[in-house]
Design a protein around this nucleic acid. Structure first.
Ligand SMILES: [Mn+2]
Ligand SMILES: [Mn+2]
Ligand SMILES: [Mn+2]
Ligand SMILES: [Mn+2]
Lengths: 223, 223
DNA sequence: TTTTATTTTTAGATTTGTCTAAATTAATTT
DNA sequence: AAATTAATTTAGACAAATCTAAAAATAAAA
């Protein structure tokens, strides 16, 4: 099995994630933006990744990740998410604290280590943010989640994840006790700003569109 | 708190360990040997570490680690050994399998992570090889251990550690069930080759000088 | 105390990943 | 369709960490 540098792994991960946002091939500048680096650096790396057959790349035509590259990316994502579960479930970190640590831990190479960690954690299927954990072969469970902002007044939903992972946003949700597993019902939707009044247990509060948009849910059934 | 590259950390660790082997200042070639690199590379790094005041270095005069450098080294060693405890105690790896994984994990930066890991492991004082785990401030428990090869015929000893960490050596010891915590009594010492006959519980076996030399023990008392 | 051998440092090159500025190609406007 | 704007690539430079080979300093031997 070929090994890759930490930098290559980070580029591949970014390319994989961007690929899941748009159907079309992705361009240099979107990679540059998501990696906070220059387009020139991205071009250099694209050549290198294409050389290793981890992506298909043609000058000026954009990038498509190959099956091989996808498997590498999914293995890193798998490690990232399992470490996040470890940090929250075993070391009791809050879900808004774990991402940066996982960014380092995901590059620890041993596959045997991650296999044992997974077993120790009792084969979790989702990370603390509700994102699915790929298995050893790179298979991912697709949970058909939708944005809470697309929900209907009077319906109940269970939070399955978030569309934004910043510590600021997660801390904000935590203030309302909102996190995966929690059941929310929409009491009222304000037409003029798309904000909503929601009910969680006995509590009722107001969510701006910016917030509800980034809360991912599955239908729980009508009240 | 200043941060250092992984490479700088590895050099510092090597320099710290060499400093504990000899009283005098250590030379370029011994560092090169222990790092499996060229003397030229070592010289370059020594300038860099001296610049950061992690070592005292004078051309042709050798190296002495500073108190500041020592604290950095001890923090990495602390992380290394705590991760080794995690890997053996929690993920059930054998003591001969964990070193390489710990070499990667020791560079994960979060001090809060290691603090919580330490608490989760219930504040272990020694790693699976019997080496003491420095505390947050860099204090190390000194266990006055001696080599089993210096023991007396008829005396009992408790294994506290090993002087050699290769997987080959550790696997060899495992075959006899020898590891920290085990009590060994010396039945007979052969004068001609310094090998010894030892007793562990009901078992009796022969240890070459090369092996007994690298088994560290504390006196347990006469039989 | 010279001479010789060993150790250490310097000089110069290489690889990886980065940058800025200039050149080129593609996409939009007019 | 030509001109303008935007995106992308190339060119050239730089910092970190490494190497080999040559020069300089120290240690050991004669
Ligand atoms: Mn994350
Ligand atoms: Mn996550
Ligand atoms: Mn170790
Ligand atoms: Mn150890």
């Amino acid at each position: 099995m070929q090994q890759h540098t930490e930098t290559e792994e980070n580029y591949l991960k970014a390319i994989y994630h961007l690929s899941n946002l748009s159907i079309s091939s992705i361009n240099t500048s979107s990679i540059a933006t998501s990696m906070s680096t220059s387009s020139a650096s991205v071009t250099d790396m694209l050549k290198k990744l294409a050389e290793k057959e981890l992506i298909n790349y043609e000058k000026y035509k954009g990038v498509k990740i190959t099956r091989k590259g996808e498997k590498v990316a999914l293995n890193i994502i798998r490690k990232h998410r399992l470490w996040e579960v470890f940090l929250t479930k075993v070391l009791n970190f809050d879900w808004d604290e774990v991402h940066m640590m996982a960014e380092e831990l995901e590059h620890v190479s041993s596959d045997e280590l991650i296999k044992r960690l997974e077993a120790y954690l009792d084969f979790p299927k989702f990370d603390p943010h509700g994102d699915p954990i790929p298995d050893q072969t790179g298979k991912v469970e697709i949970n058909n989640q939708m944005s809470l902002s697309k929900g209907d007044s009077g319906s109940r939903y269970t939070i399955t994840g978030v569309g934004e992972h910043s510590s600021a946003f997660l801390k904000h949700l935590a203030k309302y006790g909102l996190k995966p597993g929690i059941t929310v019902s929409i009491a009222e939707i304000m037409e003029f700003d798309k904000s909503m009044l929601v009910k969680v247990n006995k509590d009722k509060f107001h969510l701006s569109y910016d917030v509800s948009k980034n809360i991912l849910v599955k239908t729980h059934g009508a009240i």
